[in-house]
Amino acid sequence: MPSITFIHPDSRAESVDAKDGDSAMYTALLHGIDGIVGECGGGAVCATCHVYVDGDWMGKLSPVGDDEDELLEGVAAERLPNSRLSCQIKITPELDGLVLRLPERQV
């Protein structure tokens, strides 16, 4: 099982086991990670599952789609070059070790 680490704004880190095929948003909700809201349940509507992808991992993810790009314009915290919507990050074995930083706020 790929392991994903979520780092809170206060630098607290939580590592969880993720299931192949699940989204990073769903993984976070399943493990009760505060800081991911996911109001639309992964429907790519709400932009409340915002994360900052750590280090080189950005290059290993599938590229940002047009819809996601538009939604990222509406995130509550600052949009940075490494901003992604975690519901659009699908877990694969290659993502073992992925590190995602949580923004200050989601709404």
């Binding site: 509507v45 709400c46 932009a47 819809d67 538009e70 939604l71 314009e73 509406g74 995130v75």
Partner: peptide, 12 residues
């Protein structure tokens, strides 16, 4: 897609 854009988080 049209309504998604009209009612997007950025518009909110």
């Amino acid at each position: 897609a049209v309504l998604n854009k009209v009612l997007s988080p950025a518009v909110m």
